[in-house]
Amino acid sequence: MSDVFADQAPVHATGEPAIVGAGPWALAWRRLVRNRVAMVMVVVLALIVGLCLAAPLYAHHVARTDPFQSHLDATTVVNGKKVPVMQASTSGLGLGVTPIGPTWDPRHYFLGADDQGRDVAARLLYGGRNSLLIGAAAALITCILATIIGLVAGFFGGVVDGVLSRFLDVIWAFPVYLLAISLSTVLIAKGFSIGPFRLESGSLFLPIAIIGVVYIPYVARPIRGEVLSLRRREFVEAAIGLGASTWRILWSDILRNVVTTAIVFFPLMVAIDMLTEAALSFLSIGVQEPNASWGTIILDGQGLLYTRPAVALAPGIAIALTVLALNVLGDGIRDALDPRAKLRRTD
């Protein structure tokens, strides 16, 4: 069906001089390294990932707090004075309890507390681990499954193609968030088991699997199209004519050619998946308490938007920065590999 909505940015248009005497991968690598904007983003990304990996270090040794435990009765230090983390109103009718705001002191509630009195900065770092993990793992699932489906459908054609394509059509037309919401309602409540595999509800793998599956058509379609056109190319027809085995042709002639497409899609899919994860968690069907992700922290912050906007602002900025870096990097990789990648995303 349609792989027409294309973001086609051919490299030959950039008028780069050809580099002689190097393999295609080495060439691509050299082009990528020379892309200064992309390299800046690699550094940004590395910084974010590094910070998130250091979450336990920060929580245990700097902030000295357990971000998965409620601290409703705790106290902290601001300007050398001991103050409660959850501050009950004392004026007027004395209604309401407000968590402490940002102290800008990394040792004591740098970004303030959430409605359980937990350190937002520490949760932000832990949440980033989950967001990044889900994004990367889901993108991996999407790219691998999509490559297999696209390869099989495009190469064998006929009934196989018909069945797989209809399957892709259905996922494609089923509105993304609805599918995710429906699946999560079923899976989050009960968990899931196929044979010996048992998925506990609340497991991180649930959002990963859901998001991974939902985006398969976006990658599988262009790969199928590419396989279709490769099949008609002389070198493949020649191989078939020479009596090469089907698997050999698939492996050596076709897969090698489409794998670059999958690679180009990968960082872009990570970006899309992270946004989707945030949206699902925001609709409270993604990562489950007490685990955090950037999406769930935005949700926590929504209830405090009026008095403590920092809780919602910080994770949003973190997502935007990471996704931006991934997008720029993805662009760079595509420009370097030039597979005339075709990409579509959703609202």
Binding site: S89, L93, L95, G96, T98
Partner: peptide
């Protein structure tokens, strides 16, 4: 009312 607004209600609109 959301927890976020209680303080405001109690002080500005008792």
């Amino acid at each position: 009312p959301p927890a976020d607004r209680l303080n405001e209600m109690g002080t500005k609109y008792p």
